[in-house]
Structure formats: structure tokens, C-alpha cells
């Protein structure tokens, strides 16, 4: 399948096409086979060269790839008996976020996932994973259910931001996010947050307070999108690559800043090139952290969360 690609992937795509063309000939000619082998080697090298040295902006683009696996893809690859539950019991059901319960290695847990679409039509229905207040309230309702029945919570973050619209303001977007952060802090069960694609600002943090925060290699997480920052500080959206550099939004940067606890590796070229492998890597990380966190007492889990976020920020104290 030909995946849509970015400019910086051009050498990879060209090689892949050449290989495909040669393979299509189904030749048994030893010379062609040799050429094929050489090209494949070259492809591996080029991939390593390009994907091993991605700029922050290139990662942002990968994180937005239309074919990138989204929450429901990972949910079906990781969990069994998934059942989605709908609605905030107050206003509406927000399709930008899926919430429900499932089994992971035979044990039940709650899952919250910000959900993008696979195409424009689905993206319109999902509002590009930009949640409304009712989405945050639905997520909180499910998380409180998990708290009530002592089940761990797994949150998959993938949003370009909380929706900035009239309805969202009328129904208290700011209040919904603030309340979620406060209430999540007080939950007595393990919360594992995994940033799988885009983690934009309060839209992400509104479901993103965790005991551990994990992040896929090419995901990004920041206070604002690179374009938003560029248009404000540089007054030019075209400066997004520069602002992506300045914002320190990649997984590796965030490990250094102690905002993220662990980077989950992606298959070479991005999760969309091999969703099963990406899911397998997530599974390993999930197993490890669940094993640690489920041993902790509710009080300890709460206290850990308090301490984790208390330490964030850099100030000078004279």
C-alpha cells in the first residue's frame, strides 16, 4: 500500500518505488535479484539516515500522518472485550473521545482515547479529536467509575487541542478542563497516560494527568501547536519549523524536562508503517508500568501524582 509521504521522505519513497517496480517484474534473472538486494540495502540505510535524524518539525508531521494509528486502532490491537460507553449524562456524547472498559492481559481497566478520523469524513464526525466540554465530562465520568471499582485507567492522547468554538465556550471549556485536572489528581487508581500522536495544550492535559506519562517516539506534546506559536510570536505561521525547534516538544526533549517518563519506540519511519509493532511496544511498556502501579496503595498513587507535578517548572530561588 502506498502511504502518503512528506517531502523529507522522498528518497525513501523513490527507492521503495524502484523496488516495487523490480519486484513486479517477478524476474528470476540473477542480475535483477542482485540489483533488488542492493536497493533494499540502500533503502535500509536511507531510512536509518532520514528517520534517525528527524527534526522536531518532521516529527510533528509524522505525528499527524493520516495513516498513523489512532486510539481505536491501538485499542483493538492491545485490549480484548472493549466496550465503548457514551455520553456525559448532562449534555451530549462527544465523538472526539472514546471512553469505555476492556481487558488487558485478562484484567479489566478503563480506557480513554482521543479519537481522530481515518479520512476527512470521519474526521469531521470526530471533530479532528478536538474535544468539547462534554467530552471532558464524559471522560471524567468514566474515570470516576474506574475509581469506584478500583480499576486502572489508560489514557491515549492524540489531539490538536480542545475545540475553540462558541458552543465549547458556552458550556465551559475552561471549567471542564480545570475540573478534570483537579479530579484526576485525586483519583485513587493508577493512571497511565500515553501520548500517541499530538498532545496539544490544555486539550491534552484535560485528560492527561497521570502517575506515569509515556510517549511514542514521534509524538509531540506542548503548550501550543508549532503553528499557533509561530503565528503569535513570529507573526508568521510559516515559521512553524523554527517554533517546533524552540518549543522542545519531542519525546526526547520531554524526557530531559522530566515531563515524560519513558519514550516508546516506533517502527522505523513512524507507527503508521507498522501499527502492530508500535502496539507491541506499547504493550510492553503498559505491562511494566501496570505491574508497578497496581502494587501501590490508593494513598500512595495520589501522593505520587501530587509529588510528580509539584516538581515541575524551573525557577531561580535566591
Amino acid at each position: 500500500m502506498a502511504l502518503s509521504s512528506f517531502d523529507f521522505e522522498k528518497p525513501v519513497v523513490e527507492l521503495e518505488q524502484k523496488i516495487e517496480n523490480l519486484q513486479a517484474k517477478e524476474s528470476t534473472n540473477p542480475e535483477v535479484r542482485k540489483e533488488l538486494e542492493g536497493l533494499e540495502e540502500q533503502l535500509e540505510e536511507t531510512k536509518k539516515q532520514i528517520y534517525g535524524n528527524l527534526t522536531p518539525w518532521q516529527r510533528v508531521q509524522l505525528a499527524r500522518h493520516i495513516a498513523r494509528p489512532h486510539s481505536l486502532d491501538y485499542i483493538s490491537l492491545l485490549f480484548s472485550d472493549w466496550m465503548e460507553l457514551h455520553g456525559d449524562r448532562t449534555f451530549a456524547d462527544d465523538p472526539a473521545v472514546v471512553c469505555g472498559f476492556a481487558h488487558f492481559d485478562g484484567a479489566p481497566l478503563a480506557v480513554i482515547g482521543q479519537q481522530k478520523g481515518k479520512d476527512t469524513k470521519e474526521n469531521l464526525a470526530r471533530n479532528f479529536a478536538m474535544m468539547h466540554p462534554e467530552g471532558y465530562r464524559k471522560a471524567l465520568r468514566i474515570m470516576k467509575l474506574a475509581d469506584k471499582f478500583a480499576l486502572p485507567i489508560v489514557v491515549l492522547i492524540d489531539t490538536p487541542g480542545a475545540y475553540p468554538g462558541i458552543g465549547a465556550e458556552e458550556r465551559g471549556q475552561a471549567e471542564a478542563i480545570a475540573r478534570n485536572i483537579k479530579e484526576m489528581a485525586l483519583l485513587r487508581v493508577p493512571i497511565i497516560v500515553i501520548i500517541i500522536g499530538e498532545g496539544a495544550s490544555g486539550g491534552a492535559l484535560g485528560v492527561g494527568l497521570g502517575n506515569v506519562v509515556l510517549m511514542l517516539e514521534n509524538a509531540w506534546y506542548c503548550v501550543i501547536s508549532p503553528e499557533g506559536c509561530a503565528s503569535i510570536l513570529w507573526r508568521d505561521r510559516a515559521m512553524a519549523p523554527q517554533s517546533a525547534d524552540a518549543l522542545k516538544l519531542t519525546a526526547r526533549d520531554l524526557i530531559e524536562l522530566k515531563v515524560v517518563d519513558e519514550v516508546i519506540p516506533e517502527p522505523l519511519g513512524g507507527a503508521h508503517r507498522n501499527p502492530e509493532e508500535a502496539a507491541k511496544n506499547i504493550r510492553v511498556a503498559l505491562q511494566k508500568h501496570l505491574a508497578i502501579l497496581t502494587k501501590k496503595t490508593p494513598k500512595q498513587l495520589q501522593a505520587d501524582r501530587f509529588a510528580k507535578y509539584r516538581a515541575m517548572g524551573v525557577v531561580i530561588e535566591n
Binding site: 489528581a185 492535559l205 506542548c222 503548550v223 509539584r310 515541575m312
Partner: peptide, 10 residues
């Protein structure tokens, strides 16, 4: 950047 976002949590 992200440090300011984390102040919301703190």
C-alpha cells in the same frame, strides 16, 4: 513551552 502547561497541573 511544556513547563508552563505543567503549571496548570501543579
Amino acid at each position: 513551552a511544556i513547563l508552563s502547561l505543567m503549571q496548570m497541573a501543579k
